[in-house]
Design a protein around this nucleic acid. Structure first.
Lengths: 117, 117, 117, 117
DNA sequence: GTGGTCTAGACCACA
DNA sequence: GTGGTCTAGACCACA
């Protein structure tokens, strides 16, 4: 379930995967997150690395900590929507940028995409 | 003309930008490449960094060195086409992967993309 | 009425808020304090947490327990005055310390303060 | 020169002290910051702890990293001014809040402050 | 039991 | 040489 590449820091990949699960609703708003140590074991990484990933997600407001009680996914579904739109936008823009850079027109790009959908 | 972010090694960003210019035909097949020192000055980076970028492009076959005479873009336009398809494919797959991960269906994804084209 | 931040232990915030109410005379000297369970419910915290806050206030002498009869605010108004002066002093010194640290002179500090009074 | 209390995490105290030195101009805008390892030894803490403090300062934009070359204080003196005003404002508001809470009027507060200036 | 902090130490990429 | 990442492991406060 958890796999990492060597190009990017593990904690960054953790952040991205957690974030996407939250944005997809796979982790339900308001639900409790598994303990750091448990996730660490599951993902086969050090608890500190998971901790660091959550620091970032908390900064983004997608997750919050209840002292001594554990972590929770935000219940603010509007915030989740906002983040989802942002990630989508960024993903689309990066995609278009690359395709144009290697010489695809808007039409060719859309045409090419269809083959993979 | 040359700009770099701090997240990624500069030489990687150079490779990507050179590659895209080759694949887009901006650097013509068979044409001579400017000397490393010149490019280094132009991009405001260390010549070693440009050197390292070319090592990668040579490994990919997009560029070759003629001893004592300088570097050239490959004339093998089929190879260029292949690379162009690969980059497009990879870009498309990564795009689709991310969008699906955050809960977009194929239709929604295509719909959303249209807004930005 | 009771609100807490996540940066500081709740019992510390309770201590501070109780103390300030005593020092301001909002809780009258010699008056009876509401039962721990009641306060806990009112503040939406665990009774143990309120208990711990009172232990600290008792250590400071601002509150005392009459076995089986409940807790009372001290009647020693001189002690209250002393504490009030201490808190004020500490607050002032910390304020001046910070302002000087970021480069405000005594005059600038006083000037700046006026804007907010 | 570097001293820490036990109430607050060391990395937070480091952040605060670095920040104040930047805001006071003690660390000049654009100047190079000593290497993490050096600062760690100077402050008698682990390099990771210093590292963590800088992560926060970078997030605030007061400091930036030049890959493999070291860290620098921001040259954006307007940003520094903004932060300085913010810290001052927060410090003043907290000071006023506490003093009022323990029963000082604006006049009494100003009066009391004078004694310490 | 939960998260938070800190250390010692290793290893890596970059330039 | 510089910063960045990661691990193992210890210890703490809180509730």
């Amino acid at each position: 379930m958890w796999s990492f590449n060597a190009q990017q820091p593990i904690y960054c990949q953790l952040v991205e995967q957690f974030r996407h699960k939250i944005l997809a609703g796979e982790y339900e708003p308001g639900s409790k997150v598994a303990p750091v140590r448990e996730l660490a074991q599951e993902a086969q990484v050090n608890p500190n690395t998971v901790q660091r990933a959550f620091m970032e997600l908390e900064r983004e407001g997608l997750v919050f900590t209840q002292r001594t009680n554990g972590r929770y996914i935000t219940s603010d579904s509007e915030l989740i929507q906002q983040h989802r739109c942002n990630v989508a936008k960024q993903s689309i823009e990066e995609f278009i940028y690359t395709m144009k850079q290697i010489g695809f027109s808007s039409e060719q790009l859309a045409e090419e995409l269809k083959k993979y959908l």
